[in-house]
Design a protein around this nucleic acid. Structure first.
Lengths: 222, 222
DNA sequence: GTTATCTTTCGTACACTGTACGAGAAGGGT
DNA sequence: ACCCTTCTCGTACAGTGTACGAAAGATAAC
């Protein structure tokens, strides 16, 4: 047989982490639906069943992908001003989820949070507690902030793929119904806001985030 | 051959809507992953390919499911006080998404909003506009509210299935790491909040919603 | 060197998925 | 009797995740 096992030093072989990294790459490039064991193996230059030596099953790969995404989110530090910490965390979370839109849909079905996910949550909770939030207040604030972040990411993922194209193809069949004047307010929003030259939906994120942060305060509220 | 075509009046035959309704039922009962064309056909007493007379493909079924869920959400009326309208809408949306948790993950990938979805959005936008929000303010408020609703539903869907069981099975493998004291704040939240006797995570929804509604006002803010 | 033991690769096979294609039955209109 | 529309479904195919077990390569024991 040929010399398998990779040609020496330049490809030191597979590993759990390399499988996950390649899976991330493929999911970003071709979408999560195109990520199959076979395509993943091909992308790594091996055969499908080889992957099962490094990974228990596909579900574990998906768990790993979610955890990889959490790796990219800024973890708050214990010292700084809490609102600024939460602001940074929120923005970096949104950006990570926009880089990997498929991760949002994955969140719903994951049952086993990975180490990066746990570390991230722990650090965030710690920052809030250190800022003077009670345990109950921390739970509430965290739920509120994360709900907003995930929800915004979900909406952003549901939007048409590219940025500011005419959205013609997607809206095509619906446009007929719009032309009937059935949805005047949606048309209003579309023409006066969304389709405006410099409009970027991402900016709306800041608005909502600041509104929430303004209303959040540790001690007084019960 | 036997007399197919359903025995007379009591089963008047299939229809697009009946297929969707059965799909909803199966998704609720066995989970979205268990919803296959074959299982759906069997549940309706037909053969797989028969469904394709009423439905273009599975993706259209999923689109229809999401639209069915929107059917269950209270649509705001033009007349009432806007905050109360938004409150009702938000709560009924959360409840609908809790009844059909799989719908949350589906939202990310749907590209063709159905009629009920469009009607719902249109009515909601109309209520905000009628309350004095400018077009831009409406877009922002809507984005904020929906992000919170969807995000909360996403988190709720990601929680362990039942309500207030010990969560032992899910947390099992992770518990070891918890025992090491690696995640003190998560333990704190778990013991002092989540695992408290009467605790219901759903109540946190109200807290965040009211916080957001309090900070939202039509005219003055820009 | 030889043999035994791990580590790592992967070929084959199975049950399952969505669905293209096309045959044919049921019923109505002429 | 004929056609035509409406509807049902059998067969087949390419794709999925993965169980099982055979083998090759590396390392250790003798």
């Amino acid at each position: 047989m040929k010399d398998r096992r990779g040609g020496g030093r330049d490809r030191p072989g597979l590993s759990h982490e390399k499988v996950l990294r390649k899976a991330l790459e493929l999911a970003d490039r071709d979408g999560l639906a195109a990520l199959s064991i076979r395509s993943l193996a091909q992308g790594m230059g091996t055969k499908p069943m080889t992957l099962y030596y490094y990974v228990a099953n596909k579900d574990q790969i998906l768990d790993g992908l979610v955890d990889l995404v959490f790796t990219e989110i800024d973890t708050p530090e214990a010292g700084g001003e809490w609102k600024e910490q939460m602001r940074r965390r929120a923005h970096s979370a949104r950006e990570a989820l926009r880089r990997h839109p498929w991760a949002v849909g994955l969140l719903e079905s994951r049952k086993a949070p990975g180490p990066a996910t746990l570390k991230h949550h722990e650090a965030t909770l710690g920052t809030l507690r250190a800022a003077g939030f009670t345990v109950q207040q921390t739970a509430r604030a965290y739920s509120l902030l994360d709900s907003y972040i995930y929800g915004f990411a979900l909406q952003e993922a549901a939007l048409p793929i590219a940025g500011h194209e005419p959205t013609a193809e997607v809206a095509g069949p619906i446009m007929e119904r719009f032309a009937t004047g059935e949805y005047p307010h949606m048309v209003e929003i579309a023409t006066q806001v969304v389709m405006q030259p410099g409009y970027d939906y991402g900016n709306e994120f800041t608005y909502g985030l600041e509104l929430i942060l303004s209303a959040l305060e540790p001690a007084p509220a019960d």
